[in-house]
Design a protein around this nucleic acid. Sequence first.
DNA 1: CGTCCCCTTGAATGAAGTCAATACGCGTGG
DNA 2: CCACGCGTATTGACTTCATTCAAGGGGACG
Lengths: 244, 244
Amino acid sequence: MATFLIRRLEQFAKLSVDDKDVLRVAAAQRVRRVAPREDIVHEGDKPRGVSVFLDGWACRYKTLEDGRRQIIAYFVPGDMGDLYNFVLREMDHSIAALTPLTVAEFSRETLDEMTARSPRIGQAFWWETLVFASIQREWTVSLGLRTALERISHLLCELFFRLRAVGLADNDTCELPVTQVDLGETVGLSSVHVNRTLQELRASGLITLRDRTLIIHDLDALQTIALFNPSYLHLGPQGGGPAL
Amino acid sequence: MATFLIRRLEQFAKLSVDDKDVLRVAAAQRVRRVAPREDIVHEGDKPRGVSVFLDGWACRYKTLEDGRRQIIAYFVPGDMGDLYNFVLREMDHSIAALTPLTVAEFSRETLDEMTARSPRIGQAFWWETLVFASIQREWTVSLGLRTALERISHLLCELFFRLRAVGLADNDTCELPVTQVDLGETVGLSSVHVNRTLQELRASGLITLRDRTLIIHDLDALQTIALFNPSYLHLGPQGGGPAL
DNA sequence: CGTCCCCTTGAATGAAGTCAATACGCGTGG
DNA sequence: CCACGCGTATTGACTTCATTCAAGGGGACG
């Protein structure tokens, strides 16, 4: 089940056979299955271990006192939660499953062992941490200065690139198992406006989005609209695209 | 000159005399002085070492191709840039001085040595990394669902708490050496609207802001308006407030 | 068959942006 | 010393993008 995790980390560096075994063993520990909409971590909890998303989608979110909710990050297969989060006293956000989810947990000890045994894995974990930080920064940029059309296009590009990097995009197609309300809570728009914006993208023939499946008919054009530059994802040399 | 860095890390844990010496020595290496508006790191650069902000203010920012600029983070004295950023091939953002700035640089070797020698420092560095990630998440929340008034109030609260934690707030007063254009580029609003919003805060007697000096007359009220909950800053037990 | 969630659409409203003009302080150079 | 330019702050009038409110439709599920 560590297939996606390994593919993900291989965006950073080639892993040895031994590295992969280590990861496989670790990712077989404390595996949980979670139903959609269920929290796997709740704000205020004492941090446990590091979540490793083996299969399915999840999201990080925060809720304001008055009930407004903001999705802060998406986790797709192969992603990991904050490394060493147990250094903090309590979680400052929640994580919920968006689809049926399979998630493992690296304990502090497992993490220490792995990084001690393989510096390459240690580095790959740092890379993962840094890339997540970078994505969060790009979201700040999106929310701060992109228009509705640009924001949504940008999010679609990002998710497509991330999924493609772990082999979860088929040519121009990937899953997008989130509702328009979710999208709104992600890009800081009302679901009504998300709907209208998606219509616009559909009308211009750029995408098809139906039954939780996204088809991008013209990735270049979508990237242009979104002012999307994939370098912030720090993917491999081929940009996580299909090998030639 | 490592005073603020030490105060900052002591928000996380008590440092030994030895720890502090190690930090002081490291922070005396590769010290640079930078003039306001000057870049210390530029997008696309190969990462060098980790920037350590000894004195003055800086900001992280990104620019879109069409020239729009978004400030992504503020650095105040005692803050550090991304740890192990040299794992990435190139910087995905720039960092500029906002005031006359004194900044040191930890090389990879220095960093490794320090964490090897003192696990407590290693943990404090992780804490710093995690707190910065948390701040970035909170900014995502601000931009995603707070109104103009809430956003600006929230930013003022955050900066006040952060400065107070390193001893740079005097009772209800701190520096705020940024223009209204900068503020706009931070909270995703036009400078005109920032101006109007600040007027509103002044008119309700909550703050005074003049000559780059911020006075918060009613912190509780400001926090309430902002829906500000300082827990995301993961400060010490007293919340970084003045010792009793 | 009803209920619930999600998507869609229209019309009215509102928050923030844009454009434009003015004012102020500061440094620079004539 | 004063004129000028420049960056910053302020204010007004108008516009635009996005929200809110409201209603209806479709599919999944009990």
